[in-house]
Design a protein around this nucleic acid. Structure first.
Lengths: 234, 234
DNA sequence: CCAAAAGTGTTCACTCTACACCCATGC
DNA sequence: GCATGGGTGTAGAGTGAACACTTTTGG
């Protein structure tokens, strides 16, 4: 076969490209997502994930972090690319491809301020987060599945709790996200046996029962164990 | 806070968007990737993954399947979105964002024909696939990591073998991809105990030893087990 | 008969599961 | 005391790792 060499000319239409961020938080024993009420068309007044068009000189990761800061006032949080959504009609105006990210926030008590083109920012429990703008319902369900899968074999649960936390909180977090009961004692043994939790035993008085010990996750130790082939699981 | 409502105007530059496909195959006891030799600038003459610009009326998935067919003559194969690469300078011409996919092919013996703007198409073992065009080295390493992770908890290994295969082949495939020795007997017991392999016991003579039984993967049974909470692992 | 590769069996240790039980606290 | 929730212990089932053994086939 003789190849047809020709001078390259760019004759393709360019879609617009946006980044959208699904932000998960954990509060009141529930998994929540942060939504923004749109202050502009299309879908004015409807709830959507923070996001926006990618700039010429920024990567998608940078765009995601910029949007988190601009629209939700969030910085230095866990962030990971989720999936790229490219349905032809996902935006009523013109072709828009969206690179979706998901972020994990250590508390739903963050000071949240509405930013540019945003009327309001609010945490929603998963059940309430429906009828979102664009295809964001679909993006949300992909994000939930990803989180469910990821939490089993990566230590991402800790990203949803404060630096210092109690084991029952972690337990509840896992039960909530995996959506099933997990034996208290066995969970405790499993997670402690990894040796990745540091005990901060200055007990803090609790209200209605025995006070729980306070732990933190030893990220450095995890990283070095991972190097030597360790695999975080359940 | 009073929100600033304004009429939306689209003032952002549009990057070009492409789709690139990492195609894995398994042959000669080795994991391989299919590369195309570029017949156009930039990177003319260098090896790269099949791919190209996304059209106005197609999704990224459709684009990936189209490119697989056009450039490598492949149809009806396992395909999954990998990651979206958005480094600002990944293309020397102008801003190009690439939605990368990875595909699994059931044999490296496919009839492969060079397509549009392609000089040549060839299977490379992983060691040989270096100094690729664009950021394709980086894409490849992300794809390998994904495959390594995925094969442990999803039945994707079968996508790299013919419909009917022998257990030693599957064993070798796992050893190759996970890059470590796996006990023959234990592997066999584990995989057979799931009850997902169908025995096609018409033995076929082999050359130097006892003939291996032939199996196929029962995809339907897997799907129904998965519904009821079954989790494929190792 | 021997080598090579397929396939089976056995053992031991470890881990997971399902509980039951004890402890500290507030009312 | 008792209810509540934190934390520990244990017995039995189940699983995984290591390795030895048997079977079939070609030369």
């Amino acid at each position: 076969m003789t190849s047809t060499k020709k001078t390259f000319t760019y004759e393709y239409p360019r879609p617009a490209v946006t980044v959208d961020c699904v932000i998960f938080g954990f509060g009141n024993g529930e998994l929540k997502v942060l939504l923004t009420k749109r202050g502009i068309e299309p879908f004015l007044g409807q709830w959507a994930f923070p996001g926006g068009f990618i700039l010429e000189q920024e990567t998608a990761d940078e765009c995601a972090r910029r949007k988190l800061a601009e629209e939700a006032g969030l910085e230095d949080i866990y962030l990971e690319q989720l999936y790229t959504f490219s349905d032809v009609d996902r935006d009523p105006r013109f072709r828009v491809i969206s690179i979706a990210y998901y972020a994990l926030v250590k508390s739903t008590d963050y000071l949240i301020e509405a930013g540019l083109d945003i009327e309001e920012v609010k945490w929603f429990s998963l059940g309430e987060a429906t009828a979102l703008a664009f295809d964001h319902d679909q993006i949300l369900s992909v994000a939930i599945e990803r989180l469910k899968g990821k939490i089993r074999y990566q230590p991402v649960g800790f990203e949803l709790l404060p630096e210092q936390f109690k084991l029952p909180e972690l337990h509840k977090l896992y039960e909530t996200i995996l959506h099933r009961a997990i034996d208290r004692g066995n969970f405790r043994k499993k997670i402690l046996s990894m040796g990745l939790l540091v005990d901060h035993s200055e007990k803090q008085p609790d209200r209605h029962s025995r006070a729980a010990k306070i732990y933190s996750f030893d990220r450095d130790k995890y990283e070095s164990l991972k190097e030597s082939g360790f695999y975080f699981e359940l």
